[in-house]
Design a protein around this nucleic acid. Sequence first.
DNA 1: TTGACATGATACCTTTCAGTATCACAAAAA
DNA 2: TTTTTGTGATACTGAAAGGTATCATGTCAA
Lengths: 106, 106
Amino acid sequence: MTEAEQLGFRALADPTRRSILRLLAKDEMTIAEVAENFQMTRAAVKKHLAVLSEGDLIRVETVGRTRRNSFNPDGLRRVFDWFGYFDVFWDDRLSALKSEIEKDVQ
Amino acid sequence: MTEAEQLGFRALADPTRRSILRLLAKDEMTIAEVAENFQMTRAAVKKHLAVLSEGDLIRVETVGRTRRNSFNPDGLRRVFDWFGYFDVFWDDRLSALKSEIEKDVQ
DNA sequence: TTGACATGATACCTTTCAGTATCACAAAAA
DNA sequence: TTTTTGTGATACTGAAAGGTATCATGTCAA
C-alpha cells in the first residue's frame, strides 16, 4: 500500500507526466496523440506513460494496433489521500467538514 | 509559480522526505533530531532537508549553532492545490462543497 | 499478400539523485 | 582558552531517470 503511494508520487514528480495526466483527464488518447503535445520523441512519451501506469494513475487498453491511455481517478485519489495527514494545518472548517462528508460517503 | 509547484512535487517524490515532513508536522526539530529517526548519515538527512526547504515545505531558522526545521503548511498547500484540477473526478458532493467553502474563505 | 502504420523493445548516452566520507567552522561549555 | 558539539561544505560513488536512435512486431487496408 505504501509502495503504491511511492509509485504514485514518483509518477507525479515529473512536469511532463503531470501535464500528460491533465490531458488524459480531458479525453483518452493514443501514444501518438499524447506525443503531439510535446517536443520529444514518441518513445520518450511512451516511457512517461509507463511510469504513470506503474503509479496506477492511468489505465491502458490495447485496441487492435492502438493503445488507449485513460486517466484513472482512483489511482490519483490514493496519492491525494496522503495529504490528509496535514489536514489539521489548513482551514479547520474545511477539513472538519471534509472528514464529516467522507465519513458520510462511506 | 509552476516552478514552485515542481520543487514541491520533487520534494515529495522521496519516501524519506515525506516521512520527515510528517515528523516535522508534529514538532520542529534540529537536523540531529531528525537524523535519529533514520538509518542514514546526518549529511544525507541534511540534504533531504535542503530539498524540502527548496520546495518551501519546511522553514529553517538558525538559533545559535542549532538549526530548527519546522513544517510549512502554506508550501504543502500549494502542492495540494494542484489536485484541484481533478476534483470533478472524485466525489461530486465533496468537491462541490469544497469549492464552495474555499470561495467563502477567500 | 503486400505495404503502411501504431506500437514494443532494446541499447546507449547524459544528467540527476541518494548516499557516504571527510574536513572546516562556529558556538557553547569547561 | 581549550574542548566539545552541531552544523556547513565539498568531493566522490553507484544507481536511477529522462531522453534519443534504431529495429522488430503485429494489425489494418488495399
